[in-house]
Design a protein around this nucleic acid. Sequence first.
RNA 1: GGCCCCAUGGUCAAGCGGUCUAAGACACCGCCCUUUCACGGCGGUAACCCGGGUUCGAAUCCCGGUGGGGUCACCA
Length: 499
Amino acid sequence: MPGIKQETPAGGTVRVRFAPSPTGPLHIGGARSALFNWLFARRYGGVFLVRIEDTDLERSSKVSEHSILDDLLWLGIDWDEGIRVGGACGPYRQTERLELYRKHAGELLARRYAYYCYCSEEDLAAERESLLARGEMPRYLGRCRSLDSAGRARLEGEGRRPVVRFKVPSDRIVNINDLVRGEVSFECSGIGDFIIMKSDGIPTYNFAVVVDDHTMSISHVIRAEEHLSNTPRQVLLYEALGWLAPDFAHISLILGRDRSKMSKRHGATAIGQYREKGYLPEALVNFLALLGWSPEGEEEIFSLEQLKEMFSLDRVAKSPAVFDLDKLNWLNGHYIRRLPVERLTELAIPFLERAGYIKPPVSPERYNWLKLAVSSVQEYLSCVEEVVAHVGIYFTDEVTLEGEEAGIVMAQDQVPAVLTTLRDKLSGACELTARLARELLKEVGKETGAGGKKVFMPVRIALTGRTHGPELNQVMAILGREKVAARLTAALERDNKDL
RNA sequence: GGCCCCAUGGUCAAGCGGUCUAAGACACCGCCCUUUCACGGCGGUAACCCGGGUUCGAAUCCCGGUGGGGUCACCA
């Protein structure tokens, strides 16, 4: 592809990373970045590492860190090096690497690539406003650049704690050869001296990433497009430190229905929320992979194993993608349908417990029965959570008619005869199997002279209150003789009352 | 507002100058399967943002416009 560099640098080992800041749960976008990095590493026999960027002391938490890591693992994304697992480039949490940043900041200071700045927030705000008013890019104009030691001493005397700013050359143009976007260039005149060390001695993002990516020998930085405009700053830092920058690949953003960056107001954005609703990791992974990347053929159903054989950056799209819940639901339903019943039942149990349908110790008999119930609604589910709504017909004590159509059907002339006949036949039967149910239904049809729909519909409605649902003979078998008889009786009584 | 990115059906997307009267998937509609619905099968509706170039030839290349998005923190 013209203008786009070789994906894998000749001779270089692929080393990529996912570097979340533990300020919240793992989001859809973050998960996709992690996935793309993981796939890229696996595809090219490289190393995938996870590093925690917790320099925002206010918002970072261990809770978030653990939840992000757990969600990654749940998705099937593991790492060869990094937090929890260790490695030669550790520690992998930025707050444990402060010495390193201070050392390199000191170096930049000594070589006059950086300087101390004592400007107050008020000064800065005023400057930003006037710049904005003039229609210019708000940036730091460099007031403290030429501060001498006397000036510094005076300001220190006032109790001011300085930040360290990087001196941005005003006359440069930084060119980035992005692996997905091609050539992108930025004029430094619009950047302004940015902060690399905060006044509390903690590095800022732009500085910490550079130091870490370099010291961890990262070869490719694959991240969301929102970081594209940070890249020139980082490139400048690499140059000043005398380091070779990695290759960059900025993947497009994931948008909400209204085409703006996905956020909480677009509904569920955290992986954990999908996990809780009963989405399967294989469906999420498959879906995420297709968001921005496309395979060569026409097939779209892929496992992680398959994806890692076929992933490549040159099939990553440049345009942003709208998160399509319909498609996720379809994919998830697809994966649910091919799940072994045992597995689906296991997944369904917590939901059924929460719904109050079953109680914790599930006996073997009860479990087998559950399997039947779950299996009868398997094809209806687009996520496991929905099992509750579908399986409700097996648990209610009182059947209530749902919808207008149900009432109309039950008002038909043949209904009493059909229900009575079926109930009578039941009393003779011992165990009501699906097979037997089918027989009985057939006989009822014959004896009442009502065929097909005329017998199936009333029975279905008498048993479930609904006009739609799993195969009737299955429903009967799952309910069992007693309940079927009881519900038939109840329906007949209800009918009498109406008359 | 400055800077940067993006632009094929409602959505995800293939397409890398001729094979495009433009693939596939989701959604939608219809038919079939089924004595229900769903699943499944088959079929259908539906797109190259606009204007200029370049070229024998442009969805594909260039420029401009328009639209959308991102970013401008002692957040990452």
